[in-house]
Amino acid sequence: MSDRILGAACVVASAGMAWSAQGYAAAISYEPVGPRAFPLLLAGLLAIGGLWLIARPALRGVSPYRSVPLRATLLAAGAVAVYAALFEALGFTLATAVMAVPLGLVFGGTLKQALAAGAGLGVALYFLFDKALDVVLPTGVLSFLLGGR
């Protein structure tokens, strides 16, 4: 069944692609194939693939999502999203320390272990990358301590 949902998603996506690619035309064209052809070709292929998945008889068997620990996965994905959003604002060190708590917990650590891992990683990786390897990282709210941006 879930293959059919994937197929439907492909068809919808290809329709969206084709619809927005409609308007892609060069102001002055000096080549026979413009910016529109390739995306339209891809949209066509994607639609064929999607229809194939819809038309094919659904496979009976265990759903691939049966084994997914739903709460842990949501928590981990949420941790990644929050980390991405706060990476610049909080600064690398603090954002890493915050992110490591939920992620450490879903991967089997205790609260104390996760807090320690986050703080350790945040500080150690900051010094490794920013100071030793010259990869500039945001310092965010800790900029008064670490200097920089």
Partner: peptide, 22 residues
């Protein structure tokens, strides 16, 4: 243990992404 490894992987991955365009 994974509770160190996985946050570490995520942190290093994010550093890599951030390094290109910030």
């Amino acid at each position: 243990p994974n509770w160190i490894l996985v946050p570490g992987i995520l942190a290093v991955s994010a550093v890599g992404v951030y390094a290109v365009h910030a």
